[in-house]
């Protein structure tokens, strides 16, 4: 198939960017979207034009490194990561617009690459259980009801790709933070720090200049891992609980 690509090109963090159009022929429907970009880059290199920078690593949908907005949708038309999107989801002759994640908290570094360090700092603020190595009791000391374990797991599948922020009309990171709050809050191990965790993490996401959540739901709709929207309500519940305890 033949396609036309409109790709955001930006030299560096402080440079102006613009959309550049490229034509690609002989694209196989079995290629992944990133493999299609590889083909573009090989072509550009041979034409002595700098290849398009984009983040990617595992290419199996789990590391969370890749992610671009394709025709206005984070990760494109399928509910999966960009690396697991295949060209068979497009038609011969399509024009495809490729843009980086857009948020002040995720500044563009080059072309389609953004800096998502803000997510790490949200985790630093409290997204953990303080369990120094060697202090653990036997793994069976604390049975966990399966429904709780399953709910914790559903939330824990977050890969930190940032699609939720990219898709949110407010550029809010609420789903990301809520996923971690829910994951740890559902488990007995997460209880001692539950009240302070949510407050610290929410404060950090505000400090990072993410927008506020207005429960629109685009985040969960584009999440490649299907993090449920109700984790945000869980976060709000925990937050109300913490405020009630005078934390915050």
């Amino acid at each position: 198939m033949n396609i036309t690509l409109r790709v955001w090109r930006q030299k560096g963090r402080d440079d102006e960017g613009r959309m550049v159009t490229y034509k690609l022929t002989d694209v196989s429907p079995d290629m992944s979207f990133l493999e299609m970009l590889d083909v573009l880059n090989e072509k550009l290199t041979l034409e002595s034009e700098e290849p398009v920078a984009f983040d990617h690593d595992c290419r199996e949908g789990i590391c969370g490194a890749c992610g671009v907005v394709i025709d206005g949708e984070a990760h494109g038309p399928e509910r999966t990561t960009t690396c697991q999107l295949h060209m068979r989801s497009f038609n011969d002759g399509d024009t495809i617009t490729v843009e980086p994640w857009r948020a002040s908290a995720f500044p563009v570094v080059k072309d389609l690459v953004v800096d998502r360090g803000a997510f790490d700092r949200i985790i630093q603020a409290g997204g953990y259980v303080s369990a120094p190595t060697g202090t653990a009791p036997d793994a069976h000391a604390n049975p966990i009801p399966k429904p709780d374990a399953d709910r914790a797991f559903d939330a824990a599948t977050c890969i930190g790709c940032g699609a939720c922020v990219a898709a949110c009309p407010n550029a809010s990171s609420m789903l990301f933070t809520a996923a971690k709050v829910t994951h740890l809050g559902m488990l007995p191990q997460g209880q001692p720090e539950r009240a302070s965790r949510v407050v610290q993490m929410v404060n950090q996401q505000d400090a990072e200049d993410f927008g506020g959540c207005t429960n629109i739901g685009e985040c969960a709709a584009v999440c490649p891992k299907g993090i449920p929207l109700d984790t945000i309500s869980q976060l709000n519940q925990d937050l109300l609980g913490s405020l009630g305890k005078g934390i915050g």
């Binding site: 907005v69 206005g72 949708e73 948020a103 908290a105 809010s172 927008g211």
Partner: peptide, 15 residues
């Protein structure tokens, strides 16, 4: 969080 200068060129309503 997303100034006008950073708006998407193409937007699409998903959900």
């Amino acid at each position: 969080a997303r100034p006008a200068s950073q708006r998407y060129q193409v937007t699409k309503r998903v959900h």
